[in-house]
């Protein structure tokens, strides 16, 4: 537990000290939202929702990719000697969840400024965004571990991950729709539970499979 906390703290500290990468990601979000705005102006509610989640997908690929890909391969050998693989993976997942949640909220803010704010129930939408960050960052953290072991870049992570997160994105956009349009959705909580269960499944699978990736 102590190891977990200190690993997460280490990653966040590095993030804070190397501000250029953090601000790079923020600029990426800003530029993406601005590009979307230039292409589309202020779209109608459904399109707004779709654009928001597509942006989240690209942000996830670019920000979460750093969790494993930014570390030098030799440094993994050092971690290998000090911590258990499951602790290491959990720490990376926690770190990318925190990062992703922050960036998602910033992009929500930017979206509401530039593309209009159709959100009626803000609390629900923020909740869905948080659940989305959890699911997306869990999947992409594990895939970035695979990409890092294969000595490939973030592009490989994207092609591995896109098909796997399509169902997650479908659930997310459906969940979010009930926060932005006044339609009543049957079984909202069931879908939310499915999403959370899916995230937990990803985390458990990651914990089982990561030790195999880790050993050389």
């Amino acid at each position: 537990m102590n190891q977990l906390i200190s690993l997460v703290k280490k990653d966040l500290l590095i993030e804070w000290r190397q501000k250029h990468t953090l601000f790079g990601v923020l600029l990426y979000v800003g530029a993406t939202v601005f590009a979307v705005y230039i292409m589309n102006g202020q779209p109608e509610v459904k399109v707004w929702n779709a654009l928001f989640w597509i942006t989240q997908l690209f942000v996830a690929v670019n920000s979460v990719a750093k969790s494993f890909l930014q570390e030098h391969p030799n440094r993994f050998r050092y971690y290998f000697t000090v911590v258990k693989p499951s602790t290491f993976l959990l720490a990376k997942m926690l770190y990318s969840m925190v990062l992703m949640l922050g960036i998602s909220l910033i992009s929500l803010f930017l979206f509401s400024i530039l593309l209009g704010n159709p959100v009626i129930q803000t609390a629900v939408f923020v909740g869905v965004t948080a659940a989305g960050s959890l699911a997306l960052s869990a999947v992409f953290t594990f895939l970035s571990a695979i990409a890092a072991r294969a000595q490939q870049n973030a592009a490989l992570m994207a092609i591995l991950g896109f098909p796997l997160v399509i169902p997650v994105l479908m659930i997310l956009s459906n969940l979010a729709l009930s926060a932005i349009s006044p339609v009543y959705q049957e079984g909202w909580w069931v879908m939310m539970l499915v999403l959370l269960a899916l995230s937990i499944l990803v985390i458990i699978l990651g914990l089982i499979l990561f030790p195999f990736l880790w050993q050389e």
Binding site: N174, L205, L209, L213
Partner: peptide, 25 residues
Amino acid sequence: AKISAVYNVFAFALMIPLLFILPRM
């Protein structure tokens, strides 16, 4: 062999819930 086996297991396990989710959508 190792990395692709890990991905195969991960992807297959995530495909199963997919079969239950999609028809609801």
